[in-house]
Design a protein around this nucleic acid. Structure first.
Lengths: 223, 223
DNA sequence: ATATATATCTATCACTTGATAGATTTTGGG
DNA sequence: CCCAAAATCTATCAAGTGATAGATATATAT
């Protein structure tokens, strides 16, 4: 039947080399798409970075868009590894009644986990930029990232904020606060090089977490 | 001598139509570059949006990059119109000794002005996205935007934060707080469509300003 | 070892990109 | 009205884009 490369994406098979190449291309794509965005990143740049030649991208991912979608799914998986445990813990706690103090403590834990994940060195910065780009001006991967990352994340934080205030807050304002709090982190990641250019703090993540904790205290105990 | 269009950019001359076309192209470019970024935006899209044909871009701005730089300069000018007055007022106040309470009040005014400007309806969202993109992954206009917008803005906010805490705070932490506070606003603008999709608040700007004011109160009076 | 699925490669396609040449029209001062 | 400057247009170019055809090499099962 099919004697050549299929047009659809090809899952890693039992063959050894294939899986390695598959992963190398995905890594390269995450960096290039993160740096330049979907349209501006070129398949040749990605192939070069992966030390692979051009048709390999089509062979393994069906094309540029398929590769982009695979990147989005891998980013979602990465978040699950990074903050999934804490997020699940929070979701469980939200099923039961929750005192303001408890909610605040949970929010601190959630944001601390997110901060440590986002500010961890390595290629996470590229992925954050990938997500931000897709949210700001939707592309092929928008639906995945919105449904799997953005919305659940905001929703979780918003519910905790609402509980931390003892329910004395509108749903809209809670979401607004959630977006602002998370944006203060992602903005930090996006402008990271420039932040580092002008800011010297021993451990940036620790400093950020301390600031967030203070901010969350202020939410529980307003005025 | 020069019998045809020059290769460098052409300032609006005394002629009537020329100035109008010049402005129309710039407006279209701000939207297209803001939506898609430098590399992904095409000169044909810009020309179409401006109801002009392709060579007009080269005629008036010397080419794609010249047009991009002109956009950056116009964005800077827009910020001066929007928050320049308040920023100047703050800069003057910082020249003299400043009590923590006064600094906090000034910071509230500065952030309120920035919030109203950023959340004002219209094409401002595109411009904010333009700036964020250029900061996150530097392109031709990076130096302009960094030197004229990003750095001065962070610096101003950071100094106010430091004074609001009575100087009991490191320079690095003050800048970190400044970046986070401003990012919480820009992040709101970037994801605006999605925020609106999930959030309903009467006047979004007023709600945001109230949140920022509470946050600033927490800075003056920590722990 | 041999056959077959899998993987990699070279060469090339059709298309879009930004830019320019050069002709043509419009503008506004004399 | 006339004419030079300014503005606009059509047609085209060279370079780069994503994708594919089809040949070749490699790996694994039997």
């Amino acid at each position: 039947m099919s004697r050549h490369a299929p047009s659809a994406s090809r899952a890693p098979s039992g063959y050894r080399k294939g899986g390695e190449t598959h992963a190398r291309i995905l890594d390269a794509a995450l960096i290039e798409f993160g740096l330049h965005g979907y349209a501006a990143a070129t398949t040749r740049q990605i192939a070069d970075r992966a030390a692979v030649n051009l048709p390999a991208l089509t062979y393994y991912f069906g094309g540029k868009e398929g590769l982009y979608l695979a990147c989005a799914q891998r980013i979602v998986a990465g978040y699950r590894d990074g903050v999934g445990t804490v997020a699940q813990h929070v979701a469980d706690a939200l099923a039961k009644p929750l005192a303001p103090g408890e909610a605040a403590a949970l929010l601190q834990r959630l944001m601390a986990a997110l901060a440590r994940f986002l500010l961890s060195t390595g290629e996470v910065a590229h992925r954050t930029l990938f997500v931000q780009r897709e949210i700001a001006s939707p592309g092929p991967a928008f639906e995945i990232l919105y449904a799997e990352l953005w919305r659940p994340g905001i929703e979780l934080a918003a519910e905790l904020i609402a509980h931390a205030r003892g329910g004395m807050i509108g749903e809209g304002e809670a979401r607004l606060r959630a977006v602002m709090m998370i944006s203060s982190l992602t903005g930090l990641v996006e402008g990271r090089d420039i932040v580092a250019r002008a800011i010297s703090v021993g451990d940036q993540a620790d400093a950020v977490i301390a600031i967030l904790e203070e901010q969350i205290e202020g939410i529980v105990r307003p005025g």
